[in-house]
């Protein structure tokens, strides 16, 4: 938080939240590792713990509390703000990320449960200087208005294309049936996924 202010950054809601979570970690006892008891199961006491998460192919060491969700760890600690917090209850799909290749709601998964998994967020789907075909097609089709649902839509669409190179419209609809778009851009999203499928087949040829 101090850094942001010194940098002349505005006192944004995000920098405030980051400051608050850092303070919470600072005041709680920081457990270096889970306690492993000889005579009982491993346990993480209340408070903060150092863990590792593999996100977009890179291992990050970070501190989380036992109650930190994967979504909060990604957004507030790792600064990966692509996944959005819409409802925080599994009821909008804005927070969709892939865990071990499957789309899940990061808001209902504890960060501790995401250890030893491969996490992919929307930030990890292209290469530098080479946008993912889905991203290009979402832009070309203007498949968004406010854009809040877009990262989640992209991640659900990505899984659809990974399991079916040439999905029909019904399969796309099924694939994005866990993502809500309050702006009602579903039609264009379906077009964008169809366009991305074509592009990806072209790339393969």
């Amino acid at each position: 938080m101090t850094k942001d202010l010194h940098d002349g950054g505005a006192f944004s809601r995000r920098s405030f939240l980051k400051g608050a979570s850092a303070a919470a970690v600072g005041s709680a006892a920081l457990h270096a590792n889970a306690d492993a008891h000889q005579d009982g199961p491993k346990s993480y006491a209340q408070g903060a713990h150092a863990i590792a998460l593999t996100v977009n192919g890179k291992e990050h060491r970070l501190q989380v509390e036992t109650r930190t969700t994967l979504l909060d760890a990604l957004r507030d600690t790792l600064d990966l703000t692509g996944a959005k917090k819409g409802c925080d209850r599994g009821a909008c799909g804005g927070c969709t990320v892939h865990v071990d290749g499957l789309p899940v709601n990061a808001c209902l998964m504890l960060a501790l449960d995401a250890q030893a998994t491969q996490i992919t967020t929307v930030e990890g789907i292209g290469r530098p200087g080479h946008d993912h075909p889905l991203v290009l097609e979402f832009a070309r089709c203007d498949a968004m208005q406010c854009g809040v649902c877009t990262p989640g839509m992209v991640m659900s669409s990505l899984h659809c294309l990974q399991t079916n190179a040439n999905p029909d419209r019904a399969s796309v609809q099924r694939a994005i049936s866990g993502n809500i778009c309050r702006c009602g851009t579903y039609g264009r999203i379906c077009e964008a996924v169809a366009g991305a499928a074509k592009r990806m087949q072209g790339e393969k040829r």
Binding site: G40, P41, K42, S43, T66, L110
Partner: peptide, 19 residues
């Protein structure tokens, strides 16, 4: 969420005793 501790059982009986 209020704070809680998080148990990682190695066996079913450890889980059962903890729960």
């Amino acid at each position: 969420m209020r704070p809680f501790s998080y148990i990682v059982p190695r066996t079913l009986s450890e889980a059962s005793i903890a729960a």
